[in-house]
Design a binder for these strands. Structure first.
Lengths: 256, 256
DNA sequence: CCACATGATGTTACAAATTAACAAAAATAT
DNA sequence: ATATTTTTGTTAATTTGTAACATCATGTGG
């Protein structure tokens, strides 16, 4: 009895909505009245809103709303979202991953759902976002909180990383040039990134087109230190090609 | 034409939902088909979901959901706020303080403003809240994030505390009884609290009346380990007196 | 100024979904 | 084993939604 309801819940959570007619087909032999009552219970539990002919997931609805809202209000969100979506393809179940701080990787954190993962991050807000995924184990590196970029750093954060192994690191970069490599604006933030890249088997940098050609005071990696750069269409083919040639030849990655 | 729609939007935003029948009464003379079409437009704009016989505000729905999800946070808010306000009197400029995780201490975090402080915390959301205070230095202990109470714990968190000195620790407790002392529901969370209390010169426990008489599996402190218990008026004078006699005699604290 | 297009609104009949009320079956307790 | 509660199924009545077309207002170019 309870099992059917949680199956329905799960389906709605995944697909965002469900029609009663679909449920009738799937649960052949169960009367539509019963399925209706199931949906009503789900509504009472607060996960779902009943619509004509079915039900919709509330969290799904609000995510859609958020996306609509942020698309209008802030800049480059579409690009950032697209970048995050590409990066998501490199998130593999069962692995240990690192997620950096920054708006672009924050989108990535939002996209991760229902995956058994070991997530280490330097950003409290990324950690809180990931906590919504019921299956992930989340580690937050300790340290001093930088008010500007809301990332953690410092000696304790560095020490923390000593005991962590990372399959794939998703790193954000505030600037990039072929001369200076990947750069950021805070020294201790750079230290963290550097150490993470050193420890990770594979490093993926997420960076929208506005970051290209910018130099910030601290270099945390050369192009050849990373395996993949994910960016958007605002970057010329020429630069993409050059990036492609410059990354570490680990055989696992290509430029997107 | 547009005016009617925004009136409807406003009404839904305020009340959370609206029935078509209500709209028909309110907009006397407008056909139900038109009102239906209006709601459809609102749905397309992403603010609203259509339900049988009306529409509901998405933001309202997700708020309800959040509240259901963290029932704790919506209960006893007045008491918790009052407790936090009392605790604020013990926050002294220039000091090193520890803020625990939990809804009550979260209120305290919100109340701290424009004070030069060294704040250490085990809660990412407390850290983010404190980051709004431009003058505080914020340290977040690293570690594993507990999804239920959004607090950090584990061996790294414990090690982090080794290098931190604390003047005053503001600790939350999920339960208290004279027999078992202060208790919480998670072992590693208890470890953190225990260590903090050990290191702090002064420990203040924040706890609303609902926690009294409750025993949770892990004891992290005896009454004599702490200097002050701040609670609300829902606690009998008798208990208050007994608490007052039981706390550590450091000469700095009294029961509120 | 008129004929025409466009979009919003109203009307009707019809289709679909929902509810209510009660019966049957299954699970649980006594 | 029997009583009681809970879950499920069935039916008919009610409510809600849709489609299709008619009407009205508004505005535009000739």
């Amino acid at each position: 009895m309870n099992e059917r309801i949680s199956l329905i819940r799960q389906h709605i959570q995944e697909k965002g909505e469900v029609k009663l007619s679909e449920l009738e087909v799937f649960f052949e032999g169960v009367s539509s009245m019963t399925l209706r009552r199931d949906l009503k219970k789900l509504e009472e539990s607060g996960d779902v809103v009943l619509t004509r002919g079915g039900a919709k997931s509330i969290s799904h609805l609000s995510r859609i709303k958020e996306e609509l809202y942020s698309k209008r209000s802030s800049e480059n969100t579409a690009e950032k979202y697209a970048i995050a979506k590409k990066a998501l393809e490199y998130v593999e179940e069962g692995r240990s991953i690192f997620i950096d701080s920054g708006t672009t990787v924050m989108y990535l954190a939002r996209l991760i759902e229902n995956q058994k993962l070991f997530i280490t991050t330097s950003a409290p807000n990324v950690a809180l976002e990931c906590a919504k995924d019921q299956n992930a184990v989340i580690n937050l590196i300790g340290g001093n909180l930088n008010r500007d970029n809301l990332s953690l750093s410092g000696i304790t954060a560095l020490n923390f990383l000593d005991n962590i192994n990372i399959d794939t690191a998703f790193i954000a970069s505030s600037g990039f040039s072929f001369k200076n490599g990947f750069t950021c604006g805070d020294y201790s933030e750079g230290e963290i990134k550097k150490k993470v890249i050193e420890k990770a088997s594979r490093t993926i940098v997420l960076m929208d087109n506005t970051k290209f050609g910018k130099n910030l005071p601290f270099t945390f990696a050369k192009l050849s230190d990373v395996d993949l750069v994910i960016t958007d269409d605002g970057v010329s083919e020429e630069i993409k090609k050059k990036l492609c040639q410059g990354v570490r030849k680990s055989g696992m990655a290509k430029i997107n």
